[in-house]
């Protein structure tokens, strides 16, 4: 895995936007709950590459958790189907208030090629407020890590 290079412009823009809303980026640690909201599985494959980079994740304080109550990042992949609307909202309700929503992949951003389907809501943004988006179909693991590090207050 190449060393990450998060874009400082994205980092600053996110920090300023959150500050304007009276919110802050997570400090020192990212505990991530991943939710697949109707993905083909491509983004999940890249996430597995991210998770296999264990030494780097530990160094940056990134950890994937199973319980949304212990997470401060909700990482969503997939098109946001009608069927996943309720589970997505319930996951977000279970999380602490200081949280960020990060979406991964073109499908999660706007529904991707499935945006015309009646069973698809057309992006996670139709359901919850999205703080950061990592685009690509699927994005490379390095881009996902760069995106996650942009959400971390060093």
């Amino acid at each position: 895995m190449k060393p990450p290079h998060p874009d400082p412009a994205i980092r600053t823009a996110l920090a300023q936007r959150l500050a304007a809303e009276g919110r802050a980026r997570p400090h020192l640690a990212l505990t991530i709950r991943h939710l697949d909201a109707g993905s083909c599985g491509g983004c999940e494959l890249e996430l597995r590459s991210v998770r296999a980079w264990q030494s780097g994740l530990t160094a940056y304080g990134i950890r994937f958790v199973d319980d949304p109550r212990t997470a401060n990042i909700l990482l969503v992949t997939g098109v946001a189907t009608q069927g996943m609307a309720a589970p997505l909202r319930r996951t977000l309700e279970a999380m602490p208030d200081a949280r960020l929503v990060v979406v991964i992949g073109d499908c999660a951003v706007d529904g991707g090629v499935f945006k015309d389907s009646q069973a698809v809501l057309g992006g996670v943004v139709r359901l919850v407020t999205v703080d950061l988006a990592v685009t690509g179909c699927p994005p490379a693991p390095e881009h996902i890590i760069d995106g996650l590090l942009a959400a971390l207050d060093p």
């Binding site: 098109v79 189907t81 015309d116 389907s117 009646q118 069973a119 698809v120």
Partner: peptide, 11 residues
Amino acid sequence: FGYAHRDILTL
């Protein structure tokens, strides 16, 4: 199952 139904065949 049924959560991730995307109605692909209709598309």
